[in-house]
Design a protein around this nucleic acid. Structure first.
Length: 966
RNA sequence: GCCUUGGUGGCGGAAUUGGUAGACGCGCUGGAUUCAAAAUCCAGUUCUUCGGAGUGUGGGUUCGAUUCCCACCCAAGGUACCA
């Protein structure tokens, strides 16, 4: 792609001058783009106004984590789409909020700090600078004055503020929303907690008003911890020894850490948790109101995992070693099968296991429990099919028949779900069936005319309950109803809904995250007052956990809160009496990203998260674009925090983003050379035949569009290839191609920097859109970009012959107007529906047609420039200026489609053949008419069916069926 | 296993409510221009034994199916002992 060969054979001096002219007259993307990017920055062309009479529109991208690797061409896909939409909305007269920022707390910067000793903020700043440069060169219309960074103390002050508010709230099930904790305290102080219905507080001990009055601060806090929206709890967590931290469920993939792929084990630790489970039902219900992709909604629905059933109490039968009766609660979704119970299984971690175990079984049970505890999550998942368990020696009574039922423990029952105990119905549940089969337990059949000798019958359809007392003869639905009614009326339990969604662990043993605004006075957690936030990260000597296993903040000589001076005390001498240790953990990555969309509205506000009026004005995010990988992480947490802030009246919206689009991934197209066993001969792809070859990734920049390898570049690539021998096809080495994820190790990464330098940002933007539907994943192939570059050159030539602007005041031809308005119609439709790929095609067709028509008319070329502007903003600005305008094209009204300009007008004329079938004839006419004489031709197969022949001349009328006799 | 999305030329992908499949671009072929290249322009490009065949496979509905229905196969992503 060299346009100016500096020297060429036979080049005469006389040709130098024309070549300079050539430079002047042609489309010069790099020069144009740099100039307009500077203009936009200088004039703040895209600054959004917080107080405007215009209608607002909020277009948001998921902000990036600024990684050291920089951007590759796949990253900006969503940003380009959102930018097109934001620019389109500005042309339509909206006050558009289109901000960008950085999710700048994170593990990579910390790990780099551990290795080099460099403070993570330095790495982070360098990465942000690089990101900014890369983003700027793509010509995005961000309002950079609103930039936020989650690692900025001025920002995380508000992360800490939200944490404080969560701490000072509880979830009231009576009003079904979060409430200030003071309301609860007042109520307990006056009437105790007996009548309080709070989410997650099932285990809270009973506390009367007088109990409360006698409580010490520590006792009060202990009780309140059962209610707070964020609370300390001894929880089984995903502990990653290699990273030295706990991970949330969504950060664990197949028993390994999402980042780094290190093994993860279960461990009990005292951690801060977020009571997201309180919102399970609302998070589920709210999905209906959101215009989000169905797969994403499904992912959240599955993650929340609502299941409806019943909680049933089984009582233990007394025996020699078990004198008393103990209740064991189970959760089941199939209470209709309760008469099929033949045993009960407890999770090995179930609190009653120890108590229930008989002396005979004690050895076996203890061995089993210990063995299960040692197995990592990964081991447990690796051999899901292995059946294991032990009999406890205890029996419970069947709640209806009073038959004795043996109690087993087995690791297929999870401690964390439901009650950690199941009533096993082998005939209706495959896992129970397998367990029964393995341990030769009975498999009673309670289904009519169903064979359960080889497998359980899990279907709910077409089932008739048998041998089940009052349920016999009922189908699934009526049996379910009757069973729950009986369970409730006899006091054996109640109908219940269970969620898979668990409260989220909120503590991380990391340095590079938000500190908690929490200190411990005599071991009791207390908040740092709002007025004194932020609690700023201390300097530490190293970023690893301390030798005693404390989180990295423990490396600060002191990390404490001075309750007299109201300030952080770090690395200095302290007065022990008024200074108390601060929380050593930091917050997880998702904290800062769960409300950033609010902060963009009013990023410099120091008095509040954002001004109330401003929040009312901007409201919800109208369009949110980002990857689907955040379905069960960021997008769920952000919904949770938004609902919480809404409940407490801090923000006016319960849902933060109305419409969401998941952009697809742009994959890389890797290239391979094939080496023979002699280790130096490389065979062109077509010549391999049956010979054994080793495919080797080669850098995609050395391969051209027809898969031919640049042999010289390849030899120079690595010293060991310098002496390589090639078997060529017709003098060319053809490489193999494969579509893979873009990655350095696969040598298929294409940087937007190079692409912009060679083809320009406009060509890149158009090409990324042209590649295919936004939501679909599609492979990158740099060669194809010549298509959109060619379009831009043609567009340029429409306006300029190099020396002067060609646009004149002539009256456009009807054909040119038709071309223009067809394009206006198509592009408006496409943008509205986010199908950006097809509008690029429309642009190409439009420019080709106008060029053929020799159109020079201002009344066509001006609207065309506006039309193109969202997609290719730099060239549009340049053309706009060339046509004599001052200032930016960015706020010029978008052209409006005029049907009259499209010479054809379509009307529908209903007809029928031989009175048999109705057809609709769509006629395109230069001028619409009420009566048209048309020549009707029919599809040959239609004629065969009708038994006639066309063409026939007929008069057709819109709105009236005309019968054509064949 | 379950959920979701998709399967159309050599490639990325188009195709209103069912109505001429393959728009647009890449790549390829031929031509113009050039001392030569680059760039640009023009023409052609689903396959074909020239009868036809053809939108993953097999059925169905229909005068007519890429589009609607049923069954299956394949690929990608998510999720997984959730009782």
């Amino acid at each position: 792609m060299t346009i100016f060969a500096p020297v060429c054979f036979g080049c005469r001096l006389g040709r130098v001058a024309p070549r300079i002219l050539y430079k002047m007259m042609n489309y010069q993307p790099t020069e144009i783009e740099a100039r307009w990017q500077a203009y936009w920055a200088q004039h703040k062309t895209f600054a959004a106004d917080n107080h405007s009479d215009k209608p607002k529109y909020y277009v948001l991208d998921m902000f990036p984590y600024p990684s050291g690797a920089g951007l590759h061409v796949g990253h900006p896909l969503g940003y380009i789409a959102s930018d097109i939409y934001a620019r389109f909305k500005r042309h339509q007269g909206f006050n558009v909020l289109h901000p960008m920022g950085y999710d700048s707390f994170g593990l990579p910067a910390e790990q780099y700090a551990i290795q080099t000793g460099q403070h993570p903020s330095i790495t982070t700043q360098a990465n942000i600078d690089r990101y900014r440069t890369q983003l700027d060169q793509l010509g995005f219309s961000f309002d950079w004055d609103r930039e936020v960074r989650t690692s900025d103390p001025a920002y995380y002050r508000w992360t800490q503020w939200i944490f404080s508010e969560l701490f000072q709230s509880w979830y009231d099930l009576d009003t079904d929303k979060a409430q200030p904790i003071n309301l609860l305290i007042d109520r307990i102080a006056s009437e105790g907690n007996a009548g309080v219905h709070a989410a997650g507080a099932e285990m809270a001990p009973a506390c009367s008003a007088s109990d409360w009055a006698g409580f010490s601060p520590a006792q009060k806090e202990e009780l309140l911890q059962h209610y707070r929206m964020t609370y300390l709890a001894e929880t089984e967590v995903n502990w990653c020894p290699a990273l030295g931290t706990v991970l949330a469920n969504d950060e664990v993939i197949n028993g390994r850490s999402e980042r780094g792929g290190h093994p993860v084990v279960r461990k009990k630790m005292l951690q801060w948790s977020m009571r997201i489970a309180a919102y399970a039902q609302r998070l589920l219900d709210g999905l209906a109101q959101l215009d989000w992709p169905q797969p994403l909604k499904d992912a959240q629905t599955n993650w929340i995992g609502r299941s409806q059933g019943a909680q049933v109490i089984f009582h233990t039968l007394p025996s020699d070693y078990l004198k008393e009766t103990y209740p064991i609660e189970v959760f089941t979704t199939r209470p209709d099968t309760i008469f099929g119970v033949s045993f009960m299984t407890l999770a090995p971690e179930h609190p009653l296991v120890d108590l229930l175990t008989s002396p005979d079984q004690r050895g076996a049970v203890q061995e089993y429990v210990a063995a299960t505890a040692q197995r990592s999550e990964r081991d447990r998942m690796a051999d899901v099919k292995r059946i294991s368990g032990v009999f406890t020696g205890a029996y419970v009574a069947h709640p209806f028949t009073q038959e004795p039922i043996p109690v087993w423990i087995g690791d297929y029952v999870l401690a964390g779900y439901g009650t950690g105990a199941v009533m096993a119905v082998p005939c209706g549940d495959q896992r129970d069936w397998d367990f029964a089969q393995h341990f030769s337990l009975p498999i009673p059949n309670i289904f009519k005319e169903v064979d359960v000798s080889t497998a359980a019958y899990e279907s709910k359809d077409g089932v008739v309950i048998d041998s089940s007392d009052f349920l016999t003869g009922l189908d699934y639905k009526s049996a379910l109803k009757a069973a729950i009614a009986a369970i409730e009326s006899r006091g054996l339990g109640q109908g219940k809904i269970n969620y898979r969604l668990r409260d989220a662990v909120f503590s991380r043993q990391r340095y590079w995250g938000e500190p908690f605004p929490v200190f411990y006075r005599n071991g009791v957690p207390e908040l740092v007052n709002h007025a004194h936030l932020p609690v700023v990260l201390p300097e530490v000597k190293q970023y690893l956990p301390t030798p005693t296993g404390e989180p990295p903040l423990g490396n600060a000589t002191h990390w404490a809160w001075d309750t007299v001076q109201n300030r952080v005390v770090a690395n200095e001498l302290i007065d022990q009496k008024t200074v108390f240790p601060l929380e050593l953990n930091t917050m997880p990555g998702w904290a800062g990203s769960s409300f950033y969309f609010l902060r963009y509205m009013d990023p410099k506000n120091t008095a509040a998260l954002a001004d109330e009026e401003v929040m009312k004005y901007w409201g919800q995010v109208d369009l949110y674009i980002g990857g689907s990988e955040h379905a069960t992480g960021h997008l769920l947490y952000a919904r949770f925090w938004t609902m919480f802030l809404y409940d407490r009246g801090f923000i006016p919206q319960e849902h933060f983003a109305q419409k969401l689009i998941n952009q697809g991934m742009i994959t890389g197209t890797s290239a391979f050379v094939y080496r023979l066993e002699d280790n130096k001969t490389f065979v062109s792809k077509g010549l391999i035949g049956d010979r054994p070859v080793t495919p080797i990734h080669v850098d995609v920049s050395m391969v051209n569009a027809s898969d031919a390898l640049d042999i010289d570049a390849f030899k120079a690539w690595r010293p060991e290839y310098a002496q390589a021998v090639f078997e060529l096809e017709n003098g060319v080495y053809y490489t193999g191609r494969e579509v893979e994820k873009m990655s350095k190790s696969k040598y298929n990464v294409v940087s937007p920097d190079e692409v912009c330098a060679t083809y320009g940002a406009d060509a890149l933007r158009l090409y990324e859109m042209f590649l295919g539907p936004l939501e679909q994943s599609k492979p990158w192939n740099t060669a194809g970009i010549t298509g959109t570059l060619g379009f831009l050159k043609k567009l340029w030539r429409l306006y300029s012959d190099g020396t002067q602007c060609l646009v004149d005041e002539s009256t456009p031809s009807a054909a040119s107007l038709k071309t223009l308005h067809k394009t206006i119609q198509k592009v408006t439709e496409d943008v509205t529906q986010f199908s950006f790929n097809t509008s690029v095609s429309s642009f190409m067709i439009c420019v080709n047609e106008l060029a053929q028509q020799g159109c020079k008319a201002r009344s066509v070329l001006e609207p065309l420039a506006v039309l193109v502007s969202p997609y290719a903003p730099h060239i549009a600005e340049e053309l706009w200026q060339m046509m004599g305008h001052n200032g930016s094209i960015a706020h010029v009204p978008f052209p409006v489609f005029d049907p009259a300009m499209v010479a054809e007008s379509e009307k529908e004329y209903p007809i029928s053949f031989n009175g048999k079938t109705k057809f609709t004839l769509s006629l395109s006419l230069d001028t619409p008419k009420d009566e048209v004489e048309a020549v009707v031709m029919a599809h040959p197969k239609t004629l065969e069916y009708l038994g006639g022949a066309t063409p026939k001349k007929v008069i057709v009328v819109p709105g009236k069926i005309v019968n054509i006799v064949l």
